[in-house]
Design a protein around this nucleic acid. Sequence first.
DNA 1: AAACTTGCCAACCGCCATACG
DNA 2: CCGTATGGCGGTTGGCAAGTT
Length: 368
Amino acid sequence: MGHHSCCNKQKVKRGLWSPEEDEKLINYVTTYGHGCWSSVPRLAGLQRCGKSCRLRWINYLRPDLKRGTFSPQEAALIVELHSILGNRWAQIAKHLPGRTDNEVKNFWNSSIKKRLASLVDVPALASLVDVHNSKPPEEAADFVSLNVNPNSFILSDQRQRDQLYLSPSASSLLQSFSQDTDFKPNPSNDNVDLIQHHFPFAPMLPTLSNTASFDPSWPLMPFVAPNHHLDEKHHVPNLSNEVVQDDKLVNPTGAGVNPYEYGGPLMATQTVPKLCEILQGNLCNMPLTSVSLENLDPLVSRLSSCFPISAGSSYSHDMHVAPNQMEFIDTIITSMPLSSSSSSSSLSALSSGQYITNPTLPSSGWDP
DNA sequence: AAACTTGCCAACCGCCATACG
DNA sequence: CCGTATGGCGGTTGGCAAGTT
């Protein structure tokens, strides 16, 4: 069990991949695409099973991987998405361009979970929400019901999406994400040079100086690759559907597929599904060039309100996280279920609509 | 300096869903 | 419709490096 037929036909190597094996796999996939993974090892001259090749490509060799440290913004997004989706790492990773489900899962298990455990004294969600400012009792009741019925957490009624004022929580957790040593770049890997040699347009490994509090390709905007000229070796397809915007290639449909997941030749662009595609089961294929924040994925819109997107740019270039942004993300973290085994049905109130922080509310008394 | 502990993360395992003949 | 192959996912493990005693 667990091994596919291709793995049993011949002896296969297991364990860590060598740079030579990586090179063989990169050369093969970039030239021919992976096609049927079970045939890749044979055609690429590898003593591995197809499943192992697939995993190595998806989790490490794909040129669109960041391979760097998670930014505070990414951490916040993971926390938020996990509160909605539970341990559906692949779904979460789709909203984090350049990140794999394995990476997100490891990050959660090693870092976020630990921090949440340290906040065990945070009060229950109900005490976080101060609905008395603008809420008639019946709407407050609607809000409460959202925590009971997982199917009703998408608020379609504008009244329901009125702003909820959240008590500002301690920002220690989120701040720790941006300050402490967990946000250092990954240790150097022997194969990084190899990958960057093959994929010069791949996102760069962050440096010590820029990862602590800022990641220029943070995840709320679709990943766009620099407009490099690519040679024939990389099989660049017709990019007529893309437009050049601020020296970036952007797919104006806002929709797309990850070429590395579908076995096609390498492409220079990638977009990610919007959260609403998951939550609502439909597509929001609005042109990026004309879409307003209100029309974006609600999560993106909400987070964008805290991490402003400068007009006309493809993604935020803010160099630091402002205190109110810290508050917002911290609110996300402290409002999610503390159980590490939260399932897909565990929904935080933050999944329910629009929120803003109310800086006038007292924060003392329950700061960790 | 050596032994031990801890944490990270790449890779594997086992299961499920889907495609295909 | 059925059986098999394959892709994909989440859970788990083992090796390694860094930190601690």
